[in-house]
């Protein structure tokens, strides 16, 4: 499949045109943010991180990092399960002007409605492929809230190059996760009736 190049901050028209099944490659700065970050973004509505989030993707990821010289290097950085951010994500996308979220496992109807409303997308990175994804990270640009949240939960601003992900939820209201859930539920109901 031909993959689509996305330079960051993103061209919002291009993001809006993406469809479930499209493979994308990201170039530019993304920002990690997971459980503590989402709770913080919604409950405190801080101004201190607006500049780094605007126009890019929030990556559900708690990386393994290493001190290198005066800065940081990323050792391993695959996605974490996104559904935990379901209560917050739609609001986070809208409030901070994000182009979307990157994670794994997909998200629910509330987020999907948020994607439609804001013209953003949910990108699925392959869970567990942490070394491969870390090698697509050129450098740590900066980190915020490290002291308060600890390594896995901090906002790591990371410049990526050729970072692969799959569009699994789009701004047209489609979701691969919903499709697979519905098909597998049908199979599950049939298998329940079959004897082992």
């Amino acid at each position: 499949m031909e993959s689509i190049r996305l330079n960051l901050p993103a061209d919002r028209q291009l993001v809006k045109s993406l469809k479930v099944g499209d493979e994308v490659r990201l170039f530019g700065n993304i920002v990690t943010g997971r459980d503590a970050a989402h709770k913080y973004l919604v409950e405190q509505r801080p101004d201190s991180v607006r500049d780094i989030l605007k126009g890019t993707f929030i990556y559900h990821c708690g990386p393994v990092v290493k001190k290198v010289g005066g800065g940081w290097g990323v050792v391993a950085a695959g996605p974490t399960t996104s559904i935990r951010e379901e209560p917050y994500e739609a609001q986070v996308l809208e409030e901070y002007g994000l182009a979307g979220a990157i994670g794994k496992g997909g998200m629910g109807e509330k987020t999907l409605a948020g994607l439609v409303k804001t013209g953003s997308v949910y990108l699925h990175a392959v869970g567990g492929v942490a070394t491969l994804l870390a090698q697509r990270m050129k450098r740590v640009v900066e980190v915020r809230m490290l002291e308060e949240f600890g390594t896995p939960e901090a906002f790591w601003v990371i410049e990526v190059e050729d970072f692969p992900a799959l569009v699994t939820m789009d701004s047209h209201g489609d979701s691969l996760h919903r499709q697979v859930l519905e098909a597998s539920r049908k199979r599950f109901d049939e298998l329940l009736k079959q004897k082992g």
Binding site: V64, A77, G78, V126, V129, A130, T131, L132, A134, L166
Partner: peptide, 25 residues
Amino acid sequence: RSALAYIVENIELSQKSTSPICQDT
């Protein structure tokens, strides 16, 4: 298929570079 290809590649990269297979250890 694409996901499995990344998984297989990652297994080899992690072993070669002795870095964690997954960031969640």
